[in-house]
Amino acid sequence: MIEAKEIIFSYGRHCPNVLQNLSMQLEPGRIYGLLGKNGTGKSTLLYLIAGLLFPQKGTLTFEGRKTRLRSIETLQDIFLVPEEFELPDITLSQYVKLNAPFYPKFDHTLLAECLREFNLPEALHLGRLSMGQRKKAFLSFALATGTRLLLMDEPTNGLDIPSKSQFRSVVARSMSDERSIVISTHQVRDVDMLIDHILMLDGNALRLDASTADVCRNLNFEMRTPGEADGVIYAEPTLSGMACVCRNTQGKDTQLNLELLFNAIINRPDLAEIICSDENRNTPHLT
């Protein structure tokens, strides 16, 4: 679907490269979590994919078409939910009436379902909503556009606690085998139950590009007492003991702790190689 080849990008001639020789592929039917520290280029990568920024070197294509050309076919199949957006001072129904015709696969039923899930009435005036409500209304519209690629930059920012679980629910509901969603966030707990592929940016490169299944196949996430250090790759103290990342040698299935994994990869760059290794691919899993 999306193919990036050796992308180099910087915000100016004399600025350091935000992305250096980045290559990756996005496949349909997956929800990607784009993770990284502040300033590592998460939003930049989303904008590059959307064709809103042009790489200095390398190519970025969507279904074989360069995204920087912003062709009509590409724009009809990519929707971006930026962190900051503006909505006109009109009602939601007017907004939908004016904007939905641009998206050939717009699904009015899905829009109604998303609004219902977010507890938003259909008779909304976009100019009179709180920030969280505006975000929910915009997310509902974005999901209903039916684009094959949906890019979201910090979508859970500004949402209250119940809305975050509603968000996960509407995203899961809108998924299909043809669609791909990329969620860029630093609030990993909001999306760890949702994503099935992790893209982790660090130091202007893609540090990890692996499915959650691969991560869980190769690593265990356990709580241990400070004395139990055997097989531990990375550990950090918590109130209830040591949160550890260990090599999954016995094929055990543990729940993915995205925050711990993130910290582990930042501190142990070689961990990405362990995750991507095929060592445990055929090991039977114990639950």
Partner: peptide, 11 residues
């Protein structure tokens, strides 16, 4: 924000 909305519009 305006640029994003305008440039991403399918036209």
């Amino acid at each position: 924000a305006k640029r994003t909305g305008h440039l991403m519009l399918p036209a």
